[in-house]
Amino acid sequence: MQIVQDYYNYWICIALMMVGLYGVIAKTNLVKKAISLGLFQTGILVFYITIAKIEGGTGPVTVSPLAGEPIYSNPLPHALMLTAIVVGVSTLAVAMALIINIREKYGTIDEHDIHRMEHEMQD
């Protein structure tokens, strides 16, 4: 139990990523697949944030010179994750655009149906 408590933030990351990965693999609905992918990415975002956080640390902003030397959390991963969020959003946007197109061309967004249709086409 101790290991769960001590590292609960890591467990959350793992849980998020696994749920996401499961969705990517198991869901046949393309939209659900894309959302699962987003979930997976979120897991990694949280992971980065969690490794940067120091207990009791604050943001790297000098509040008052009199307060002494405060403990800062590492700001770099936070900044990195802003970029990663942008990447994630773009990925999701591209995925959605593709799915809309697939819906137009195939009339469905279910992978099984699409596979069945493609199977009948010649190479």
Binding site: V24, K33, P77, A95, I102, M121
Partner: peptide, 29 residues
């Protein structure tokens, strides 16, 4: 039209690959 499904397939696999890379970098960091 199979270009679309090929693209989304690549998107899913490629994103997972990139995420794996990102995760690995986190460990090294």
């Amino acid at each position: 039209r199979r270009a679309l499904t090929a693209a989304i397939n690549y998107l899913v696999i490629g994103s997972i690959g990139a995420c794996f890379y990102l995760l690995g970098v986190a460990y090294l960091y």
